[in-house]
C-alpha cells in the first residue's frame, strides 16, 4: 500500500511540474518625435504593474513578462489620433490548470515621456499596482480598478494642469497619495466595496472639487492644513468622524475655511461603512 501511495504522490508532483506555464518577455517602445500630446489607454488584466515617468527620448515603453498561453500583448499606436493602446488582452484557450500562485504572476513596467501631455486611461483587473504619476504631464486621468490593490502616487507636482481625475474601483483597495500635486480641477471617486485612502497632501496651486461615492466600505481622507476644506456628507448607515472640523448646516468646515485662498470641497456619499478624517502636518 505504501508503494502505491508513494507512486501516486510522485505522479501528482510530476504532473504539477509538467503543467508549468510559459512566461514570455515582451518589450515595446516608441521614440519621441516631438509629440506634444499622447492619449494612452492601458488595460492590464492580472499581475503586478508599475507605471511611472520614463526617458524623455521615448514617448512610451512597456516591458512585460506575461503568460503566453493565456494572454497576448497589446501595443498599437494610432498616429492620426495621437493615441496608444498598451497592455495585455486575454487570448488562447485558457481553462483551468493547477499551478502555483507564483507562476501566475505577470509583471509589467510601463513608462511615458515627461515631455508630452498625457491623457491616461487605465483599466486594471486583478492587479497589484503601483502608479507613480508624479513628474508626468498629466492632463486627464481615468482609472478603473476591478479586484485590485493599487497605489496611485503624485510624489512630484504634475507638470501640466489636469482637467479631471476619475477613479473607479469595484472590490478594491485603492490609495491615492499626494493629490495636491496632481493639479486636477475635479477629482471623482466611485467605489463599490473595499477601502479607499485619499491623501490630499502636496503642493496645492488651485482649488479643487472632489466627489466621493462609496457603496460599502471605508473612506479615509487625509487633509492638508493649509487649504480650506469643506466636507458635505450624504450617508445612510455609515459613521463619520469630523475630527477638528466645524459643522455648518449640512457641511463640515476646517478652521479658517472662509479666509483660505484655496479651497478643497469634498462631497462624500456613502451607504454602509465609515468615513474617517486625518490631518496632514
Amino acid at each position: 500500500m505504501r508503494r502505491v501511495l508513494l507512486s501516486l504522490l510522485a505522479l501528482a508532483l510530476g504532473a504539477t511540474g509538467a503543467a508549468a506555464q510559459s512566461m514570455r518577455p515582451f518589450s515595446t517602445y516608441r521614440q519621441w518625435h516631438g509629440e506634444t500630446r499622447l492619449d494612452a489607454r492601458l488595460e492590464y488584466a492580472a499581475g503586478a504593474l508599475r507605471l511611472a515617468a520614463g526617458r524623455p527620448s521615448e514617448l512610451y515603453r512597456m516591458d512585460v513578462l506575461y503568460d503566453g498561453e493565456r494572454y497576448a500583448p497589446v501595443s498599437a499606436f494610432d498616429a492620426a489620433r495621437g493615441g496608444v493602446a498598451l497592455g495585455l488582452r486575454a487570448s488562447g484557450e485558457g481553462g483551468l490548470r493547477v499551478v502555483s500562485r507564483s507562476q501566475l504572476r505577470q509583471t509589467a513596467s510601463v513608462t511615458f515621456s515627461p515631455r508630452s501631455d498625457l491623457a491616461l486611461a487605465v483599466t486594471l483587473g486583478a492587479v497589484d499596482g503601483d502608479l507613480e504619476l508624479g513628474g508626468l504631464r498629466l492632463t486627464d486621468l481615468k482609472l478603473e480598478a476591478g479586484a485590485s490593490r493599487a497605489t496611485v502616487r503624485f510624489s512630484q507636482p504634475n507638470a501640466a494642469r489636469c482637467r479631471a481625475a476619475t477613479l473607479t474601483a469595484g472590490a478594491a483597495e485603492l490609495s491615492v497619495l499626494g493629490l495636491g500635486n496632481s493639479r486636477c480641477d475635479r477629482i471623482t471617486f466611485e467605489g463599490g466595496v473595499g477601502r479607499v485612502t485619499l491623501d490630499f497632501g502636496g503642493a496645492w496651486t488651485s482649488s479643487a472639487q472632489v466627489a466621493v461615492r462609496m457603496a460599502l466600505g471605508e473612506v479615509a481622507l487625509r487633509l492638508p492644513r493649509g487649504v480650506g476644506v469643506r466636507i458635505t456628507l450624504d450617508k445612510f448607515l455609515a459613521s463619520f468622524e469630523p475630527k477638528g472640523m466645524v459643522r455648518r448646516g449640512t457641511s463640515y468646515l476646517s478652521p479658517g475655511y472662509d479666509q483660505a485662498t484655496r479651497h478643497l470641497d469634498i462631497d462624500v456619499t456613502t451607504a454602509i461603512g465609515g468615513v474617517t478624517v486625518d490631518w496632514l502636518e
Partner: peptide
C-alpha cells in the same frame, strides 16, 4: 508567500520585487 507580498500596504515591496525581477 502571497500573503507576505500583499500585506505590504504601500506596495513598495511589490514594486521592489518587480524592479528586481525585471
Amino acid at each position: 508567500a502571497f500573503a507576505d507580498a500583499l500585506s505590504d500596504p504601500a506596495g513598495s515591496r511589490t514594486v521592489q520585487l518587480v524592479h528586481g525581477f525585471w
